[in-house]
Write a protein that binds this DNA or RNA. Sequence first.
DNA 1: CCCATAATTCGAAATATGTCGAATATTGAA
DNA 2: TTCAATATTCGACATATTTCGAATTATGGG
Lengths: 105, 105
Amino acid sequence: MSNIEKPPLAAAFKALSNPHRLTLFNRLLNCCEPGTRCDAASATRFCVGDLGEGLEIAPSTLSHHLKELNRAGLVEMARKGKRVECWVEPEKLKTLSQFFQPNPP
Amino acid sequence: MSNIEKPPLAAAFKALSNPHRLTLFNRLLNCCEPGTRCDAASATRFCVGDLGEGLEIAPSTLSHHLKELNRAGLVEMARKGKRVECWVEPEKLKTLSQFFQPNPP
DNA sequence: CCCATAATTCGAAATATGTCGAATATTGAA
DNA sequence: TTCAATATTCGACATATTTCGAATTATGGG
């Protein structure tokens, strides 16, 4: 487990394996309005604090989880004034979705 | 982390978060021939031993990982004589694939 | 019935993860 | 500049995971 290849996909799934992180990701998942062309520019954004709303975890834990999602390449982050905005790149979703469709019809 | 809800999806992703398990799952993923209607009956099957081929892990570890994949609902298992066959239900793949497509076009 | 093959269970050890609180940064506003 | 709001880093601790080898179970063949 220490010197074997760790594919990016495994890292992504690890990030999503924690219920708290899965919830956070889920809140960013409906990133564009239904029926619209979903590009990075129109993706819904939440700041860190709002994302953790209702989840009863410490701010430090929330920060840690978002960082994990970011390191796994699932969530983008950018400071905007006092806040830090988070969003999901639609391209990333496509990649993950297609992993489970190895034989398209 | 002890008393919070643990959604089935989180369990699935946790199962796929380990590189060895991801490899095992991957070997079962191309479960049907390209272009054919992919149903459970025609899904490719491997026995436990063959699945672990090339992965340098102990039989007990291999068994453990398959059990995890099975418990997470990702891999089906059934004894067939001396062997135990493993396969992936196409329905499961559809569910996982759609999770990453919350806003279909 | 006895043996070989295939797979699982169990217990132990090393490592990784989730979580918190305290301390620290970063920014905008008064 | 000083303060409040937002977010991150750090160190610590409890719990979970990964892995192995030894022992055990399950099955079919001779």
